[in-house]
Nucleic acid binder design. Structure first.
Lengths: 201, 201
DNA sequence: ATCACATTGTGATAATTATCATATCTTTGC
DNA sequence: GCAAAGATATGATAATTATCACAATGTGAT
């Protein structure tokens, strides 16, 4: 089956999958970083989640729908592996072990999305921003100093708050010496406090 | 495999699965209605989703974790079918078709949870309450008149707002002749308007 | 290089939502 | 039946968040 896989490279900002397009392949990330988002009323976007290397991009809807109900956009130079969905299904039909493994991995990934969404929902503005900063530091970059791959507007689209309040709160974190940053270059100075804010607002 | 299934009946309010308990069975709803919830900080609960007959109760974490990270509670008299997870896995390993079907169903269910959560997140207080009322009317009871299976507090735990504001907003909807209700007996009077509120706040 | 446009940044004000207080009404356990 | 606890209800006030307005900076296209 892996002989049937094709690789595609995308530049930062390029759209990899368009919302509404037909699902032909099962895809996963070989390198880079992507965001999953969807269009909501009045032309705004809502960011659903981010995916790292070896995360599946084909998550939602891959087996339950014929079209994507979300857009996948590269946030960095990204290489995607695509496997023809029909061929994958043919293998899955014959190989229960493979399918069970696949199901486990998809289950893990959707679990994370759901729990992350629930966590964000129960937090207030400050807690949500602390959550996002910690998410990129701990989960994506594994470093307290990193280059934020998204704009303040995209943070807002992810946490469901306004861009102005994201900027304002980050400025406040800077004033309080919790963060240092220059544009997208971010450093967590007081991780303990940031974690407290993430947990208790 | 279906020979290995056992049925269990639960009364309204009974806990079916305790958060943190070991996952031994794959379970689905034969009849009734349940809520999935989890404990969050300061002893509060957060409702994740509801499940109807033939929905899988074993959703999150079933293949990716050894313990449940959510509680399942009966909201009505409920019958649950349980299939030993090891036996189900054994069948899955041998039967790719079965596993693929199972994966499709789990994928559909988690999709719905994610999309519902995203929808709720982008709406304001009024929109969220309209959303929940319409959810029970259209999706659960398929009737504009129904008995709400949860308290105002539980609505609050589901939509992430305070109980007082849920009550206040519902009273407002009653004053504006959008809803009629007496306790938990609810009737949607102006569905069009309720849908507009759900969509545009 | 420069123009157009998006992003970052900040302040003032309005709108939304939470908190606290208190009352009535239901349900539950004994 | 009655006490206790929880649910529904409503008002006043505080806290949070959004909106609008505007400036400065950065970025991409030509």
């Amino acid at each position: 089956m892996c002989e049937n896989k094709t690789e595609h490279q995308y530049d930062k900002g390029e759209i990899i999958i368009h919302e509404g397009s037909e699902i032909k392949d099962f895809t996963y990330l070989k390198s880079g970083l992507v965001k999953l988002s969807r269009k909501v009323t009045d032309g705004k976007d809502q960011i659903i989640s981010f995916a790292r290397p070896f995360d599946f991009v084909s998550l939602l809807s891959i087996f339950s729908s014929s079209t994507y109900n979300y857009t996948v956009t590269a946030l960095d130079e990204t290489i995607i592996c695509a496997i023809d969905l029909e061929k994958l299904k043919a293998v899955a039909l014959k190989n229960g072990e493979f399918t069970l493994g696949l199901m486990t991995r998809i289950s893990e990934a959707t679990d994370k999305i759901i729990l992350n969404n629930l966590d964000i929902r129960r937090k207030n503005l400050k807690g949500r921003i602390a959550h996002v900063i910690l998410y990129f530091a701990n989960y994506i970059y594994k470093n307290n100093k990193f280059e934020l791959p998204i704009s303040r507007r995209e943070i807002a689209e992810y946490i469901g708050m306004t861009t102005e309040n994201v900027i304002r709160t980050m400025s406040e974190f800077r004033k309080d010496r919790i963060l240092k940053f220059d544009g997208k270059e971010i450093e967590i100075v007081n991780e303990k406090l940031l974690e407290t804010i993430s947990e208790h607002g």
